[in-house]
Computed example of a mutant assay.
Amino acid sequence: MFSIFKNKWNGVIVTTLKGISQVMLIENAVSGFMILAAITIASYSLGIVAFLSSLIGTLIGKIGGANDESINQGLFGYNSVLAGMALSLFLTGNNRWLIALAAAAIAAFVTAAMMHFMRQTNIPILTFPYIILTWFLLLTTYRFVSLNISPTLKPQSLSNWTLDIEGEINWVDGIANGIGQIFFLDYTPSSVLFFIALFWAGWRMGLYAIVGNVAALLTAYGLGGEYSLIFAGLYGYNAILAILAVSAVFKGNSRYGLLTGIIAACLTVPITASIDTWLMPLGLPPLTMPFVLSSWIFLAARKIMPQI
């Protein structure tokens, strides 16, 4: 009896780690452990939130009777991970940990709902559940005293906006921070571990991440973006996810998958700038919506033009 329970628990841990790895579109428990370690060395509290969030999402999927294949792939964990981490960072107060874990649970239900709504399209839901849930919960802070938004997320008036293109050029920081910002981090040792986790899952994953990140850096720089944003990785992380989705994970029989992925990565840059501008009066971050929109465009277009 004990051995049966132990095997089941081990299975849950493995699936939980896969849920963490799925944030970067990987189904690999070892990569998930590396990613968790990278988060934890930057912030042990964020590491705990990431693990518990993935565990909560996984358990809700199991208890709810979701498809075993989806659960075992970690597909009920990654949106919970991002929602839990985002809200633990973007809220203040002692109750933010409880709210973050509650959001991780809700993210599992939103994930299931989105899977149902998009089933007929055969287009992956990606991180859309986490984005919508996080935006909605952050906006509730203006109506409830028990929820307090971080002072770093301040609404700004577009009428007073000026573009600041001053700053130091540091391409190395841009490459490192791009992958780190997927998990809201700008800590170089963590970024190195993230790259190792990708290469562990497959050399193409690691190489494509570098190519997508560099493509985004050059695009943002060429368009005259703010240096501080470019080299903080805020134009890179969506590009990395987009090229992984379009060129590697959902490539299908595409002949020009890598080229399409590079274009998708570059497209995330103006989309990021646009969404960031739209959200400035609300004080909300763009999160991974640029990645979702860019990837959806090319994955949907591939239904009509399968070679792209």
Rank of each mutant, 00 (worst) to 15 (best):
A83W: 04
M85Y: 04
L87H: 00
S88R: 09
S88A: 14
L89I: 15
F90N: 02
G93P: 09
R96V: 08
R96F: 05
W97M: 12
I99T: 14
I99Q: 11
I99K: 08
A100G: 11
L101S: 05
A102I: 15
A103C: 09
A104V: 01
I106W: 01
I106F: 14
A107C: 00
T111M: 06
T111L: 08
M114T: 11
M114W: 08
M118H: 04
M118Q: 06
M118V: 07
Q120A: 15
Q120P: 00
T121G: 04
N122C: 02
N122Q: 12
I123S: 03
P124T: 11
I125W: 02
I125M: 13
T127I: 04
T127F: 04
I131Q: 04
T134E: 04
W135F: 09
F136G: 11
F136I: 15
L137W: 05
L137V: 11
L138R: 00
L139D: 04
L139P: 00
T140K: 05
T141V: 11
T141H: 06
Y142G: 12
F144K: 02
S146C: 10
N148I: 14
I149L: 09
S150L: 03
T152G: 07
T152K: 09
K154N: 11
Q156R: 08
Q156C: 04
N160Y: 13
N160P: 01
W161F: 13
T162N: 10
I165S: 10
I165N: 15
E166V: 12
G167N: 08
E168R: 10
I169H: 11
I169V: 15
N170W: 03
N170Q: 11
W171H: 10
D173V: 03
G174Q: 01
